[in-house]
Nucleic acid binder design. Structure first.
Lengths: 229, 229
DNA sequence: GTCTATATGCAGATAGAC
DNA sequence: GTCTATCTGCATATAGAC
C-alpha cells in the first residue's frame, strides 16, 4: 500500500469519526481500526493526535470557505459588484446548512467536522481559529457595499446572528423538534436558509432605515438607563 | 468539619472549575485541590464524577429556570395575564445574558455552568436535558397568549432563534469582538438583550402579519422549488 | 513505510486504617 | 466521615524489528 493511501485513509476515518462522536470520544485506536491501518502509522504520518486534528481543521476549513466564497462571487457578479443582502447571507449560511441538514447525498463530512470543531474547541483548533475572522471580513465588506448606510456595529451583529442561528440549529436539532412536536421542519433546508436569511436581512435593513433604527436605539437606551437605577 | 460543609465545598469548586475550563479539562483531583478536601470524598458523597456533574446540572438548572420564570410571571401580571412579546423574550434570554456577560457583581457561576453544560453535552447531562423542553413550553404558551394568530412553527422558531442568538453570543464573544474591532459592545448587556429581543419580536410579528408572512412563505417555496431542479 | 511490543502517564474508583 | 495508598484501565507516544 503506497504511503499516501495510508495517510488518506487516516484522514478520512478521523474526519468521519470525529464529526460523528466528537474529539473526546474517539481514540487513535478507533481511528486506525476504521482506517484499517496500524496504530503507529498515525504518529509516523502526523506526529501527534493534535497535529492530525489541526491538519483536518485546516484542510476541511478551506473546503467550507471555498464553497461560501463561490456563492458570494456569484452573487456579486450577478449584481454587477454589489450583491443583494439576502444573497450574501445565503452564501454565508447556505453551504454549511446544506452540508449538515440537507438530503443525505448533499451532506458533507467536511461540514459536519467543522461544526464539531466549533463545538469542542480543543487546543489544536483554538490556535488556528483566527483565520476565520479574515474570511468573515469578506462578507462584511460585501454587506457594506450592499448597504452603504448601515451602521458598522449593526452589520457585524447581523453576520454574527446569522451564524448563530445556523450553527445552533445544526447543533441542537433535537430540542426544537421535540419542543415543536415536529411542527418545525428541519428537513426542508432551503426553507430554513430563507428563514434565517429573511430574519437577518430584516435586522440589517431595519437598522438601516433611520426612523426604525432611532426608535430601537432610543428604546434600548431608555431601558438600559432604567435598569441602572 | 461537618459533612455538609465538605459536600458544599466540592459542589462550589466543581461548578466554578467546570464553568471556567470545561468538563474535559478538569479532573477530580483539580476539584478536591480547589475545595480543600480529600480525593476520596467525591466518591463518598456523590458516587462518581458523572453523578457529581448531574447533581450540579439539576440544582443549577433549577436556579436559572427560576430566574426566568420570575421575570415571566412579572410580565404576565403586568399585562393582566397577557404579557408583551418583548417582555416574554426578555424573561427568556435576560437572566442568562446578565449572568454571563453583565458586570462582574451580577454574574453567576450558575449561569456560566449552564452554558458550559450546553456546550459540552457530556453523557450525564444529556440524560437529564429533557426537562428543558417543559420549561420552554411555558414560554411558548405565553407567546401564544400574546400573539394568538401566530403560526405554531413560527412561534417555536422564534424561541429557538432567541436562545441561539443569546447562547452563541455568550459562547463566542471573542470572534465578534475581533471581527468588529470593538465596535460591537459586549459589555452593554442591556443593549444586547434589547437587540436580541427586538430582532425576535420582529420575526414573530412579521410572521404574524398575514401579507408579509404569505410573501415570505411563497418566496421561500419559490426558491426551494427552483433549487430542486 | 509498516508492524509488534511496550513505555509512560493520568484518569476514576476503591480498600481499609483511623 | 475522612484520610492514605493503591488498583485498574485506557490513552498517547515511541523503540526497534522487519
Amino acid at each position: 500500500m503506497p504511503s499516501d493511501q495510508t495517510r488518506a485513509s487516516i484522514l478520512d476515518a478521523a474526519e468521519r469519526l470525529y464529526a460523528e462522536r466528537g474529539f473526546g470520544e474517539v481514540t487513535l485506536r478507533d481511528i486506525v481500526a476504521a482506517a484499517g491501518v496500524n496504530l503507529a502509522a498515525v504518529n509516523y504520518h502526523f506526529g501527534s493526535k493534535d497535529a492530525l486534528i489541526a491538519e483536518l481543521f485546516v484542510t476541511r476549513g478551506v473546503a467550507t470557505n471555498r464553497a461560501r466564497l463561490t456563492e458570494l462571487k456569484e452573487a456579486e457578479t450577478a449584481g454587477n459588484g454589489r450583491a443583494d443582502v439576502k444573497a450574501i447571507l445565503r452564501a454565508l449560511v447556505g453551504p454549511t446548512l446544506r452540508g449538515c441538514l440537507g438530503p443525505d447525498n448533499q451532506q458533507s463530512t467536511a461540514a459536519h467536522f467543522m461544526i464539531r470543531a466549533s463545538i469542542e474547541s480543543v487546543p489544536p483548533i483554538r490556535r488556528i481559529k483566527n483565520r476565520e475572522i479574515d474570511h468573515l471580513r469578506k462578507f462584511a465588506a460585501a454587506i457594506r457595499r450592499a448597504l452603504p448606510d448601515c451602521d458598522d456595529a449593526d452589520l457585524y451583529w447581523g453576520l454574527h446572528f446569522a451564524l448563530a442561528m445556523a450553527h445552533q440549529t445544526i447543533r441542537d436539532t433535537e430540542r426544537l423538534t421535540k419542543l415543536s412536536e415536529g411542527k418545525c421542519d428541519l428537513d426542508n433546508v432551503e426553507a430554513l436558509i430563507e428563514r434565517i436569511v429573511d430574519a437577518c436581512a430584516m435586522m440589517l435593513t431595519a437598522a438601516n432605515r433611520t426612523p426604525a433604527r432611532t426608535e430601537t436605539a432610543s428604546s434600548t437606551i431608555r431601558r438600559a438607563e432604567k435598569l441602572k437605577n
